[in-house]
Simulated assay, not measured.
Amino acid sequence: MKAETAVYAAGAVCWRIIDGRMHVLLIHRTVHGDVTIPKGKVDPGESLPQTAVREIAEETGLEIALGVPIGISRYDMPNGREKVVHYWAGEVSDHALQHSTFKPNGEVAALEWVTVKRARTYLSYQPDVEILENFAALVDQGVTSTFPLILLRHGKAVSRGSWDGADAARPLSGHGVKEAAALVETLRAWQPTRIVSSPAIRCVTTVRPLSAATAVKVKLDDRISQDAWTTGDADVRRVIGKRVRSGRAAVVCSHGPVLPEIVREVALATSTPLGSYVTDAAELEPGGFSVAHLSATNSGSGIIAIETHAPRV
């Protein structure tokens, strides 16, 4: 089957604790008469994380932040096209429940919170059960409650050869400005509450649109700048250690040469054995980012998952 015929979609296993027990949210669809995990097709121009959050809001009335990626389903639709669905976990907060806008409609007849055990028998489709089992594995490991550290490389800058000022003042190119704008809705899928950036203009300009959209101020920190890294004055360990201890969703924007050390320090701060994933997660194109998912309850339990996203323009 040709890749261009595939239909892409995204969704999430939404979860919360009720009376001390893990429950997940299932939807009863009106037209199909089935029970599924909330998901939906990618709209033109959307990223998969953006789609997941939008579809959850549209189908369930709940605003969530994405958690750990929990798998990809692939199956053939009745028309012969392949459907590829990316899933994340998504904790539903009390605030989200209180502000739910769900009403039964032509697409979704009802929502139901059930235990993982019951969900196994309720779900209408085997691919959904397989995704549920991936989530159940996180539950068994006690690592469902997580927070993300988003490690971002600045957007494409003007070339050094065409710039005669200080390197820290080198701005984004026109393409880099577009990359910065395109990042906003995707990064908002994880609801970052902190933005830390190298003071270099190309980094600050990359995160400025996100800051404007979220009202989260940018904290400049020279300890993750390329200049400090070049002179040996960088202090990535302290910057990353603080972010790990905080337990808050954060974006850290830095430079290509500094990113391997940043990823390494995330691993060391969480007692994660070093491996090839460290290199892979740090090999980012300008405007690309990796998301390290860490336990919110036990920082020493290691990196739960890492996902990497290429620039979208």
Rank of each mutant, 00 (worst) to 15 (best):
A3L: 15
T5I: 00
V7K: 08
A12W: 01
V13L: 11
C14H: 00
I18L: 13
T30E: 06
T30C: 08
H32K: 15
D34L: 02
G40Q: 07
D43L: 15
G67S: 05
V68T: 05
Y75H: 11
D76P: 05
V84R: 04
H86D: 05
G90M: 08
V114M: 08
R118M: 13
R120K: 12
L123V: 09
Y125W: 14
Y125H: 13
P127S: 07
L132K: 00
E133Y: 00
N134P: 09
L138R: 01
G165Y: 09
A168M: 14
R170Q: 00
S173V: 12
A180T: 11
R188M: 15
A189I: 06
W190L: 05
S197Y: 10
S197Q: 10
R202L: 07
T205I: 00
A212L: 13
V216P: 02
V218R: 01
T230I: 14
T230W: 10
T231G: 05
T231E: 12
D233S: 11
G241I: 08
R243F: 00
R248L: 15
V263D: 03
S271V: 12
P273V: 10
S276G: 11
A282Q: 07
G288H: 07
F289Q: 07
S290L: 11
V291H: 02
V291P: 02
H293Q: 15
